[in-house]
Write a protein that binds this DNA or RNA. Structure first.
Lengths: 289, 289
DNA sequence: CGTGCGTGAAAATAAATTTCTTAAGTTTGT
DNA sequence: ACAAACTTAAGAAATTTATTTTCACGCACG
């Protein structure tokens, strides 16, 4: 994985000296320039000597200037804007770029924190379940659990997705052994979901949470898949965290499928067959367009 | 934007000479090595002379070896695996990484082809609509149009999302002037959607399609937002194209909001207020967790 | 039997790093 | 409180390393 040069650049806990701080600012300010320049260009522009630049790079954890440039280039496309002060994007072009970048950022950050063990454990729990309940409310999490439904029913899972708080309580109270409950909450402060989880724990029904670590929801669940991402503050913009959640669903679904491929492939095949028949033999569609 | 070194590397329409092809293979085979090495290391490993490497870089459109390395590093994180032959991922770790990478790839490719004009046009059409119908069926597109609903109702749009083919026909037949219809189809071969669009065109109701260019659905719509991405072939894996569609929704929603900020902010504020009140003053939640 | 392209050897240039030196600040001892 | 000893930051010059240019050779194709 890439050295995390960014956190280093942004401050480095005061380990940077005066001129080095100047360098850091310059670098963050114009990554493109740095990536294109030689050490002496950069030194000149920063008003320092080349050796200072070399030392700066080393302190950031790189081998030297070249390595530094490469590391920098690596994270240029993804991740850059996270450090820069939020410049509100206004033109349609900017809006589009910004949204895509944020989405990639979310995936990037998520990628660094994936808890494979938890995912795997959850997948096996799901694969073994006789019935799955998926709870998620108010838009974002609703989308996520509906998507979980959409993915898992194809893999021969019996699953129901519910987006209704009151229903969820009833469903929790009615759940029999053999049931596994998945709940999603981006903030982890969905207290109705906590209530469901508590009830389920008392009844020894296993629960899986997709949520923020250390949150009430996380505390209440048996298996916790944590997704901790910073939230943007543009109220006109849906949260980029959704992309990470969606990826989580995809990973989960894939792991469930792999946990018993034969079983999964059987259902997938018959769904496909039926779709093709229904659509008059047009085989070009994705499974579930 | 980054020079598209990848397409150059992968074939270059036969413009590469014998040794250069060898270099290209080596580079694709071990990007990490190249990115870390000096020109002479690379030359030695490829069994060529340093000048050949320099010429190779130039032919690929770079200024020299350093520039080449930087370009390469830029696209290392995103986009790389697209060129490599699909190695089936089996361990949970690999599955997770692969899904995230594919999702980022989808966003990356999407980013290069965004038709801002079409998006902007669509956004203004939506902002001006008295009522919006959103049609999308069979899972993937269903998620997308439901998400569109979830985004737009917050912005003071009157919108209904429907995932039912027969309903869609009825809704199309019933649509009055002032209505705008959005339809999503990943493959563009959703013939029921085409039928709806044809009906709507006859009745002069404007339509917006999110779909593949040149497809039947695209032909039948007034405004076409094209999303053309290669499909993976792992049947256990949902299509990564969904991430691009989701980004499209986010962009659309943001543009609709910006088309009349005051109007949008008013509704957003009252939704927020109501949520905070309902949740006992906990203000930390995302709008619609 | 040229002409042109691909190639490498050697030379020239450019880039980066090391070493050495100085200066400025910090700590410690009296 | 002051100075000596130490530490750290920084650059100049020297050195090393890397890259590119130039030039010459050889092979393929007309």
């Amino acid at each position: 994985m890439t050295v995390d040069i960014f956190s280093a650049l942004s401050d480095e806990e005061g380990r940077l000296s005066g001129l080095e701080k100047r360098l850091a600012t310059l670098v963050l300010d114009d990554v493109d320039f740095v990536v294109k320049s030689s050490i002496s260009d950069l030194a000149e522009r920063a008003g320092v000597s080349p050796p200072t630049v070399t030392r700066f790079c080393r302190r950031l954890g790189c081998q030297g200037y070249q390595d530094f440039k490469v590391q920098l280039a690596k994270i240029t496309y993804v991740g850059l804007r996270y450090l820069k002060p939020e410049t509100p994007s206004t033109t349609p072009q900017e809006v589009a770029e910004d949204i895509v970048t944020k989405a990639q950022n979310a995936l990037f950050q998520f990628h660094k924190q994936i808890d494979v063990a938890a995912l795997d454990k959850a997948a096996h729990l799901l694969r073994g379940a006789e019935f799955i309940q998926a709870f998620g409310a108010t838009g974002n999490s609703a989308m996520i659990v509906n998507e979980l439904h959409n993915r898992l029913f194809r893999l021969d899972c019996r699953i129901h997705a519910s987006n209704d708080h009151s229903m969820n309580i009833m469903l929790s109270a009615a759940a029999r052994p053999g049931t596994v409950v998945v709940g999603s909450s981006i903030t982890g402060r969905d207290l109705d979901l906590v209530q469901c989880f508590n009830l389920l724990r008392k009844r020894s029904i296993p629960t899986i949470a997709l949520t923020q670590s250390g949150s009430p929801v996380a505390e209440a669940a048996d298996v916790v898949i944590t997704i901790d991402l910073p939230e943007g503050n543009n109220i006109f913009r849906p949260t980029a965290t959704r992309y990470a959640y969606l990826a989580t669903i995809d990973i989960l679904a894939n792991l469930v499928a792999y946990a018993d491929r034969n079983r999964a492939v059987k259902v997938l095949r018959s769904i496909k067959e039926e779709l093709v028949r229904y659509r008059d033999g047009d085989d070009r569609q994705v499974l579930g367009d």
